[in-house]
Design a protein around this nucleic acid. Sequence first.
DNA 1: TGCAAATACTTAAACCCTGTAAGTTTGGGA
DNA 2: TCCCAAACTTACAGGGTTTAAGTATTTGCA
Lengths: 189, 189
Amino acid sequence: MARAGVTAERLTRAAADLADEIGFQNVTVSALARGFDVKPAALYAHVKDLQDLRIRVAELALTELADRAAAALAGRSGKDALVAFAHVYRDYAKQHPGRYAAAQIELDPETAATSAAHRHAEMTRAILRGYELSGTDQTDAVRLLGSTFHGYVSLETAGRFDRHPRDVDASWSRALDALDVLLRHWPPA
Amino acid sequence: MARAGVTAERLTRAAADLADEIGFQNVTVSALARGFDVKPAALYAHVKDLQDLRIRVAELALTELADRAAAALAGRSGKDALVAFAHVYRDYAKQHPGRYAAAQIELDPETAATSAAHRHAEMTRAILRGYELSGTDQTDAVRLLGSTFHGYVSLETAGRFDRHPRDVDASWSRALDALDVLLRHWPPA
DNA sequence: TGCAAATACTTAAACCCTGTAAGTTTGGGA
DNA sequence: TCCCAAACTTACAGGGTTTAAGTATTTGCA
């Protein structure tokens, strides 16, 4: 029997794809091994354990998302940048629900520092350069934007908006209008 | 050996408590059975399966949260109501992380209709009575508020705000100020 | 009061998953 | 060529879910 050619990278990509198909929580070492026509134990030569695999998928997702966001942000500012960033974020979550779920797991401080996680915060800050916010206001706004984006995508994915006829895309668009207004009229402390 | 006195209700409460301790995803039929000094199989007389148990915990959490929110909202309006609601929401999530996680699982339409899920949307709408929003604007605002609350709590719980020294309570407070301003200056379509 | 039926619980077993240890195969380089 | 490191398998321990069948306990009613 020829070797299957398993590597940590191929494993991670396969896990990410599988997560998008069947859900991040349902990705198992066994299912992954089946996909490579290999026994489960074989994977432990390339990956420490399931947790390690999950962290790799999370890092993959964070990097992909940061790359897309960076591309979308290039040459844009103000509301233009805000909307572009928001769309990348939401589209990625819809297109890759498993990867998106992976990106939400808790990373230990060292991993988080190495990973693309800080690029996200940096880019959100970049968006705010088009508005006049500084110091703690900027941090508060970064947190608010991140929360709203993540919350919207997360509730939408969970089907929380399905029980109302109002178009979800339209609500999203209006939410962005509203956030733009908010950033331009950020209340003084 | 006397009977353990297991019922679906006691099981659900125990599962919710266990979820708050060790995480919703780590609640197992086996662990629960150990808590009642009973074999795992015994639980299947009271609960259909693990999924059924999870749904029950979700309904418990949604009801508890709706009850608290209703109490907090009584006699308040405008920003007062907004802030009270937001605090109940965030405090519940911090106090009962397992229950809160349970409340986020996808419920099938029938369960969702029966459950307290719609009471939440109703209450969020009630908050908006203090602001002048109607029709689709109201729905969009409900979605935005829900997203921001859930997103903030969810990111905070995941430790996403820990890498910055800015006080998380303070950011939350400022976010509420900002949302109040936003609802009073909701942009026209 | 006593006993039959309903209910609670146990035992047993099939099946799935994670992870470790030890053995075997494979392929590339000296 | 042959050796050795890496890739992979086998074997197994341990734990979880769930069903089926059997035993024990309680309830209710005659």
